[in-house]
Amino acid sequence: MSLLSIENIHTYYGNIHALKGVSLNVEKGEIVTLIGANGAGKTTTLRTISGLLKPREGKVTFNGEDLAKYKSHEVIYKGICMVPEGRGIFARLTVTENLEMGAYSRTDKTEIQNNMEKAFTIFPRLKERRTQVAGTLSGGEQQMLAMGRALMSNPNVLLLDEPSMGLAPVLVELIFDTIQDINKSGTTILLVEQNALMALGIASRGYVLQTGQIVLSDSAENLKKNPTVQKAYLGME
């Protein structure tokens, strides 16, 4: 049984049919990537998993449990945490306060302290800036903060939405290395990316989403060799 599985979900924005029967599985300990062009429905898929959008059809199961009965703020207690697109940091709170908010679902003080130490070890930059207001961090630091904040809840699955967005290539590499490190320490990752080459480089498997439907799914190696993927998403002729 997969850790996280989505079966044939249909999600709408009003009357707009955004997801037309998306199914995917994430196994424990994997990095799975969901790639696709703008407007394909990648973010919608993540928002449906995390409960911010409710699917009209289909179901999301986590550890064999249907998530439909949980409200969006309850999903994190199940062990699913999303790092939203554009980071979504709390701009007027300090770095430390942001991290504390990440641990909102936790009540054990020592556990929170340990997680904070862990986040500071993974992102030493955040430790340097811990009293600074988050809105004044650079783009890369904000992304680190968003990821650190998500780790504060000790998630089983981390949903990452476009972590490379708006970052310089050097920082993108740093962020992707960190994603791998987080994965090695036992967190399963579902990574949504436009930067398909980087994403397929660290993922074990991948799905290709096109106008609300999964059109391809394979191992990352095979996807990289797939001529359609190469042409459409990797910029190779």
Binding site: L52, K71, M82, P84, G88, M101, R149, S153
Partner: peptide, 22 residues
């Protein structure tokens, strides 16, 4: 805790919700 969740909500409702704030 309530005060912090108010401030988080003020900054970004969606993320606050994703962090477990009702």
């Amino acid at each position: 805790r309530l005060g912090r969740s108010w401030k988080a909500m003020r900054e970004d409702e969606d993320v606050a919700q994703a962090m477990g704030i009702n």
